[in-house]
Amino acid sequence: MKFDRRTFLAGALAAASVAALPKKEAQAATGQPALSTLIDLTRCNGCEGEAMPRCVEACRTKNKSRFPEPNPAMLKNYWPKDNHEDWSEKRDNIYRLTPYNWLFVDEIYLEVEGKEERVNIPRRCMHCDNPPCVSLCPFGTAKKDADGPVRIEPELCFGGAKCRAVCPWQVPQRQAGVGPYTMIDPLPVGAGVMYKCDLCRDLLDQGKAPKCIAACPKEALTIGPKEEIHTLADQLQEKYQGYIYGRDEHGGTATIYVSKIPFALLDAAITEDVDPKQVMRFHQPVNEGDKQHRKASVALLAPIAGVIGAFAATISKKDANDEQE
């Protein structure tokens, strides 16, 4: 199977009807395999010479109707804090993730084997296999679909930004003045709504590729069934004698980068002279959610202690029963 944007027809059916199932079975039940995307950094040139990379433009155009339109009266500080996050006057910023820009192309320069290289890196949500934003969202508005995309539904999002705090790439971005918290103002809870890429969930449902993938003139972006994308990544890695990022990092993601340049070098270039927490890195984050699995398992055994304790405590009939008529 070829994976390019034109032949991609692996649209996902709604997974909502699938109840709790092991992941593989759930994916089988939707009739579609888990999807993955591949970003070939050797192909991307950031649409050199154009006003904006086409993937970014396609993303912004497609999602424009979903961008936040804040209530100006609600653009006030999050009491008792003296700040609030408002990007509504900076909608044109295409150089980072914002509530109005869910994909950007990072352009970095670095020296590799004595030669200056320019690398263009499309960055958006990695769509983790075990996303901590989903595990820890207190309202369940961050959702992971059976076929892979991770999305945030704005209807119940209070903008606490916990999803951003636990995301190793700080992907979700907050906009104040929108969302359900505006309805309970002046109660000092909530701060807006979090926004990020959902891999064009609606297009996937129609069997179409996400807009960024369809728009790429270099065919640097690809989507397809996860296993096939992994095979393709291996083939490209071998072809370029290159490197892969995103397959195993953070416990696995649905975004695989392939590069001729080691990702450690790219990461060093990205973080040079900036606060590493303020940029999207190519680091090796530990998935805290995976660690939590073991702790949750221990908690699940607690009822056994209650059962054993109750039987042990009732062996002796020393205390009289004063509750029977």
Binding site: A15, A16, S17, V18, A19, A20, L21, P22, K23, E25, A26, Q27, N130, V134, S135, C137, P138, F139, G140, T141, K143, K144, D145, A146, L156, G289, Q292, H293, R294, A296, S297, A299, L300
Partner: peptide, 27 residues
């Protein structure tokens, strides 16, 4: 809560809408 912990410990897939129902119910 047990269901949510079970989901976290075994990492099985659950339809997001069902998961949200459990989360909001717990809340």
């Amino acid at each position: 809560g047990y269901f949510l912990a079970l989901k976290n410990s075994m990492s099985f897939f659950i339809a997001p809408e069902t998961l949200q129902l459990f989360i909001l119910g717990h809340l």
